[in-house]
Design a binder for these strands. Structure first.
Ligand SMILES: [Mn+2]
Ligand SMILES: [Mn+2]
Ligand SMILES: [Mn+2]
Ligand SMILES: [Mn+2]
Lengths: 151, 151
DNA sequence: GCGAAATGTTAGCCAAGGCTAACAATCTGC
DNA sequence: GCAGATTGTTAGCCTTGGCTAACATTTCGC
């Protein structure tokens, strides 16, 4: 099964042009640069929904980083127009931040449900989804959603 | 379809403990810190196989970064025992680097074939695989492989 | 075998994203 | 309503991974 009788079975070759490959890596780097903001706004939205407010201390606990790290990251998110922030007050999402959070939660959900549909245990599914979600194209997401719906 | 008649349909809740969630994010950060080394050794192995040697200029072209960026990254890989390197000479993998490259190529292949099996077009599959491969657990990889074999 | 082209290195800059130490503000319990 | 606990901020340090500019070495063409 999935034996390839002709040109050696491995999918290893990769005959794409150097430029095409470079574009792929550039895309991955771009996605990586968005990861942190995506996870933060998603978490902030969830905290606001569940606790009524998003406090830095709760973000720090759930992200597994220290409070100063959260503070600096929040400053960058504010600079980038995703949140608003006042000294010693809890965090609010901007319109843009809310839109991003919604999109991210949607992506996270689909990836998670897809992994669960495949038969993965819930804890591993959550862990893998947390990383994979940022690297799934729109087309792939649609295929994942279709698979979940079908199963 | 995928309507959940009881507790509101979203998979959004996420009732995991803060600590468990923190561990997931810490795992993702750890994976992210390995990404670059993985892509480099995989590419170096492939260049050695295809061209007979791995030259910085070819790495730079395919990674889509400048030559000094490659040089600095190669220095870190050498420091970490994955490659050996002499001034103005091409790059060699250490035993450890070769082992990592093999593992990464294997993972890359399975993720790629899985996405293709799902029905994704080859170019998008390559792009997504390049990012996803670093965030797939052993269990998930097995499920992907099983799906490829079954289809 | 020499000059030009290609390749590689070094220095130095920058932003992101981690951390600890020290301090400031707020909140809570009594 | 105050003391102590909790929470938040600031300053400063570090590594990673990008970049450009300048220079060094190697390779190629003839
Ligand atoms: Mn995530
Ligand atoms: Mn997420
Ligand atoms: Mn990759
Ligand atoms: Mn790869």
């Amino acid at each position: 099964m999935n034996d390839d009788p002709h040109h050696t079975l491995s999918a290893t070759s990769d005959d794409r042009s150097p430029d095409l490959r470079a574009e792929a890596f550039q895309g991955v780097r771009a996605a990586r640069s968005r990861e942190l903001a995506e996870d933060y706004v998603e978490l902030i939205a969830e905290l606001i929904h569940a606790q009524g407010e998003a406090r830095p201390v709760d973000i720090a606990t759930r992200m597994g980083v220290t409070a100063p790290t959260v503070a600096k990251t929040l400053d960058r998110l504010a600079r980038d127009g995703l949140i608003t922030r006042a000294k010693y007050r809890s965090i609010f999402l901007t319109e843009e931040g809310r839109a991003l959070a919604k999109e991210c939660r949607h992506r996270h959900d689909i990836v998670l449900r897809f992994l669960l549909s495949l038969g993965l245990d819930p804890e591993t599914a959550e862990r893998d989804a947390e990383g994979i979600e940022h690297h799934v194209s729109e087309r792939t997401l649609e295929l994942f959603a279709a698979f979940v719906a079908r199963s």
